[in-house]
Simulated scan of single mutants.
Amino acid sequence: MLANEHPVLDCPPDRVPEPEELLRAALRWHFDPRTGSPFWLRRARSLDFDPVRDVHTFDDLRLFPNVVDELRETRVEDLVPRGYGDSSGRVRVYESGGTTGAPKRVVFTDDWLERSVAWSLRNMSERGHPEGLNWLALAPAGPHMFGEIIARQARARGGLLFTVDFDPRWVKKCVAQGRTEEAARYTEHLLEQAGHVLATQDVGVLVATPPLLERIARDARLTALVNKNVRLIRWSGAHMDPDTRDLLRDEVFPEVELSGGYGSTMILGGVDERPDTEGVSVFDPFSPYMSFRVVDPETGAEVPYGERGQVVMNHVSKTMLLVNNLERDTALRVRSREGQVGDSLGDVEPLASFGGRAAIEGVY
């Protein structure tokens, strides 16, 4: 590996760098022929600006084209920055859920996984989430980042992790083709696995997608098992509207803490629901590595605070540069916390269609 010329990129996981300092260091890293990825070094030739010279603030990231659709076909080796040297043992490949077509692929380096998981663990500690409990994850693993992150979180919090066989793309395909009965049978298959674990093992933390939580809520036996044993439910992976959130929290699982998350492969991770919020769920980014804008999709301008717009995502780190990505979600624009880059997101909802394709959530 090359000697590190940008210490800010390797700052300890418990330190939050100054945003513009991180941005400048990341741009130098990704567009230096010695350290940048073949993808960005090649792509730079088609840009009508100089990323190192002309990008000074996070607002300037809107100069970049949205390249995420190119990740459906790009060789993953071309996404790894050259500065990592022989990276075969330190890089993992993850894919998007395939909600809007063929999956997109990104690379996770060990240093990014360590940093993002450490941040999530700090959030759990600040919220007083229980430790020393076993986890059950009703969430996809395999090519999805979700499984790896959950596994690291469970171990770090002192618990064992139970999982189920979970293929969200099969359900999406069934829904898209009108095979709703088959999709329902697959959901029953997931819940049957979950029920056996809940009935026979000590599970204190349940990680589940909102569609599966809603399905559990309609099953008296499963609901009773969750209320008897589980102390914390962490939901993520799909949209949850405010009425459903209130119903699950106040009536279905009244003795269980409910904590939400919002994630995307295109920001290489997820963010946690702001604690103690009433009404809509609010999500704050892992700033400055992840940042959001909420915009009018026709003009690209930010909508007023409290208004709904489409989400634009940025990821800026040593591992990857993915910026100015107009996502398939809409959200209310919420004022960010002090020192945070960009916007926070309220009441995130998926678009019915995106890029000319129906956006199908299914169970994830």
Rank of each mutant, 00 (worst) to 15 (best):
residue 77 E to W: 00
residue 77 E to G: 04
residue 78 D to I: 04
residue 78 D to P: 02
residue 79 L to H: 03
residue 79 L to V: 00
residue 80 V to T: 02
residue 80 V to I: 12
residue 81 P to T: 06
residue 82 R to H: 09
residue 83 G to D: 01
residue 83 G to E: 04
residue 84 Y to E: 00
residue 85 G to C: 02
residue 87 S to H: 05
residue 87 S to M: 00
residue 89 G to I: 02
residue 90 R to Y: 05
residue 91 V to S: 00
residue 92 R to L: 06
residue 92 R to M: 05
residue 93 V to W: 12
residue 94 Y to K: 09
residue 95 E to F: 04
residue 95 E to A: 15
residue 96 S to F: 08
residue 97 G to L: 04
residue 97 G to S: 11
residue 97 G to D: 01
residue 97 G to W: 02
residue 98 G to P: 12
residue 99 T to Q: 07
residue 99 T to S: 12
residue 100 T to D: 08
residue 100 T to C: 15
residue 100 T to S: 14
residue 101 G to D: 13
residue 101 G to S: 13
residue 102 A to F: 12
residue 102 A to L: 12
residue 102 A to P: 07
residue 102 A to S: 15
residue 102 A to M: 11
residue 102 A to K: 15
residue 103 P to V: 01
residue 103 P to T: 01
residue 105 R to Q: 11
residue 105 R to S: 14
residue 105 R to L: 06
residue 107 V to E: 01
residue 107 V to M: 03
residue 107 V to A: 02
residue 108 F to G: 01
residue 108 F to H: 07
residue 109 T to S: 14
residue 109 T to I: 04
residue 109 T to F: 06
residue 109 T to D: 10
residue 110 D to P: 00
residue 110 D to R: 07
residue 111 D to N: 03
residue 112 W to F: 07
residue 112 W to I: 06
residue 112 W to H: 02
residue 112 W to K: 00
residue 112 W to N: 01
residue 113 L to Q: 14
residue 114 E to D: 11
residue 114 E to N: 02
residue 114 E to G: 01
residue 115 R to G: 03
residue 115 R to Y: 10
residue 116 S to I: 06
residue 116 S to R: 14
residue 116 S to Q: 15
residue 117 V to W: 06
residue 117 V to H: 09
residue 117 V to M: 05
residue 117 V to F: 08
residue 118 A to K: 04
residue 118 A to G: 08
residue 119 W to C: 08
residue 119 W to M: 04
residue 119 W to I: 09
residue 120 S to F: 08
residue 120 S to W: 10
residue 120 S to D: 09
residue 120 S to L: 14
residue 121 L to V: 14
residue 121 L to T: 14
residue 122 R to T: 14
residue 123 N to H: 12
residue 124 M to V: 06
residue 124 M to Y: 13
residue 124 M to P: 00
residue 124 M to T: 08
residue 125 S to F: 08
residue 125 S to G: 14
residue 126 E to I: 10
residue 126 E to F: 09
residue 126 E to Q: 14
residue 126 E to M: 13
residue 128 G to V: 13
residue 129 H to C: 09
residue 130 P to L: 05
residue 130 P to V: 05
residue 130 P to Q: 04
residue 131 E to P: 00
residue 131 E to C: 08
residue 132 G to S: 09
residue 132 G to F: 12
residue 133 L to P: 00
residue 133 L to W: 03
residue 133 L to A: 07
residue 133 L to E: 13
residue 134 N to G: 13
residue 134 N to L: 06
residue 135 W to G: 13
residue 136 L to C: 13
residue 136 L to F: 15
residue 137 A to T: 04
residue 138 L to I: 15
residue 139 A to Q: 09
residue 139 A to G: 03
residue 140 P to A: 15
residue 141 A to D: 10
residue 141 A to I: 01
residue 141 A to C: 10
residue 142 G to Q: 05
residue 142 G to A: 15
residue 144 H to K: 06
residue 145 M to C: 04
residue 145 M to K: 02
residue 145 M to I: 14
residue 145 M to R: 02
residue 146 F to G: 02
residue 147 G to L: 11
residue 148 E to N: 10
residue 148 E to K: 10
residue 148 E to I: 10
residue 149 I to K: 06
residue 151 A to K: 11
residue 151 A to D: 08
residue 151 A to L: 04
